[in-house]
Structures are given as structure tokens and as C-alpha cells.
């Protein structure tokens, strides 16, 4: 579904990503782990078009998308839930969700009715969001904001979801909840690329995983294989 080949990207005059390659098959959950500063978030940003890759290819469902702007890649079916969640603080929870489905809703009127089914699905997954649907997103707690960010990505009915550090800054109990959610998404057949610092938890839910070091994929394999690997142990920490 998503193929990344020899991707290079960076900020200003520093190249962060030096030829990363990875694949996400349809319906699978793939984890991208590695030390802080290894280039995980940069990979995500380069895939979704938030930064322009300097070299390399990104294929989404067989279609090359590298070099397009983020909005265009999103329209082609990629949903990126960014690091730090980035919910639209002043807007209500429901508006946040509706904007998630921006691409296939009418631009002016009648969009609420058209999004009904998706909204219900997200509310079922996260009943807390239904309780707070009128509340401004910025006033939610960190865990609720993370649920909203995931829900917003789901609203787009995307081919692939990129999930960047969903557990960041959350209390341990909430982190467990987040991973439970990811498991449920997996059962629902959602294709997911997951960046996580909690490597062990990530490996528990993933079908396949890549370990990044210094802007490159250092090791890859199934969770079972990786759990035996010394270098992966190092990546737990950073």
C-alpha cells in the first residue's frame, strides 16, 4: 500500500534522512522505532509532504506522491496524525472530526449529514469524544486530544494512517488505552504506520517493524525476530 524507497530529506542545510526505505502492506500495522533523533518523525513528515524530500520515492497505492504538497497527498488517501497531536484548539471536537473528512464532504452545506456514518464509528470507538463533542478541542486532556487526533485521521477513510508518537506525554494508564485502540484499529483492518518510543509496546501490536538509526533503516523484521536483536534493545532508549 505504501512503499518508501531511498528517501532523503532534511531541514535547511542539514540532511536528516539518508535513504530510508520501507514498505507497509495493506491491512498491516508496521512500527518504526529508533532512538530520539534517528529520523522517525522526519520520515513521517517527508512521506506526508510536510517537508519536501530531496531524493527518493514515495508510492501510495502504486502512485508516486513524492514532491506533492501535504494537502494533495492527503487527498490521495494518506492520513498523518502528527507528533504532538495538533488538534485545532479553538474548534469543537465535532468540527475537528468533520475537518478530518474534509476531502470527501461537500464544501458548503449538508456535510454533517454526509459524515454521519463515519462520525458514529469514531464516537463508538471513543465514547469520550461523543460526551465532549461540543467542547473546544484545546480544553481536552492530553489523552482525549490523542483520541481526537486518531479519530480525525480515521474520518478521512484513508488508505494508510501515519501515527506519530501517539503515547507522547501521556500517563501510563492512558498509554495502555492508546495501545488498546491501536489493536482495535488493527482488528478493523486499518493499514497503519506507527512511530513509537515505547518500542516494546509497539512491537507487541505490530506485524512488522523497522529500526532507524541515523537517518537510515538499520534493522527490519517481524517483532519476534527483532526481540532477539541487541541493537533493537538499544533503540528502546535513545
Amino acid at each position: 500500500m505504501l512503499i518508501v524507497d531511498n528517501l532523503h530529506a532534511g531541514y535547511g542545510n542539514s540532511e536528516v534522512l539518508m535513504g530510508a526505505s520501507l514498505q507497509v502492506k495493506q491491512g498491516s500495522v508496521v512500527a518504526l522505532i529508533g532512538a530520539n533523533g534517528a529520523g522517525k518523525t522526519t520520515t513521517m513528515r517527508a512521506i506526508s509532504g510536510m517537508i519536501r524530500p530531496t531524493r527518493g520515492a514515495v508510492m501510495l497505492d502504486g502512485q508516486p506522491v513524492q514532491g506533492h504538497g501535504a494537502a494533495r497527498i492527503a487527498r490521495l488517501g494518506l492520513a498523518h496524525s502528527p507528533e504532538g497531536r495538533k488538534v485545532f484548539g479553538p474548534l469543537s471536537v465535532e468540527d475537528n472530526l468533520l475537518l478530518g473528512a474534509f476531502n470527501h464532504l461537500p464544501r458548503f452545506f449538508g456535510f454533517r449529514a454526509k459524515a454521519e456514518i463515519e462520525l458514529e464509528r469514531v464516537y463508538e470507538l471513543f465514547p469520550r469524544l461523543r460526551e465532549r463533542k461540543g467542547q473546544a478541542a484545546g480544553t481536552l486532556s492530553g489523552g482525549e486530544q490523542q483520541m481526537l487526533a486518531i479519530g480525525r485521521a480515521l474520518m478521512a477513510k484513508p488508505k494508510v494512517i501515519l501515527l506519530d508518537e501517539p503515547s507522547m506525554g501521556l500517563a501510563p494508564v492512558i498509554v495502555q488505552e492508546v495501545f488498546n485502540t491501536i489493536r482495535r484499529l488493527k482488528e478493523a483492518g486499518i493499514t497503519l504506520l506507527l512511530v513509537e518510543q515505547f518500542a516494546k509496546s509497539a512491537l507487541e501490536v505490530a506485524d512488522y517493524a523497522y529500526v532507524m538509526e541515523h537517518g537510515n533503516i538499520a534493522v527490519e523484521g517481524t517483532p519476534a525476530e527483532l526481540n532477539q536483536n541487541q541493537r533493537v534493545l538499544a533503540a528502546y532508549l535513545g
Binding site: 495501545f179 515505547f198 518500542a199 516494546k200 509496546s201 541515523h214 541487541q230 538499544a234 528502546y236 532508549l237
Partner: peptide
């Protein structure tokens, strides 16, 4: 750090690549 309980403790140093 690991998100799970572990008996082993944290490794001391990063192995060199």
C-alpha cells in the same frame, strides 16, 4: 521508558552501530 515491566533493567550504554 519501555512501557512494560522488565526485570533486566535498562542497558548501560548504546551499542555502537
Amino acid at each position: 521508558y519501555l512501557g512494560v515491566e522488565s526485570e533486566a533493567g535498562l542497558p548501560d550504554a548504546m551499542p555502537q552501530p
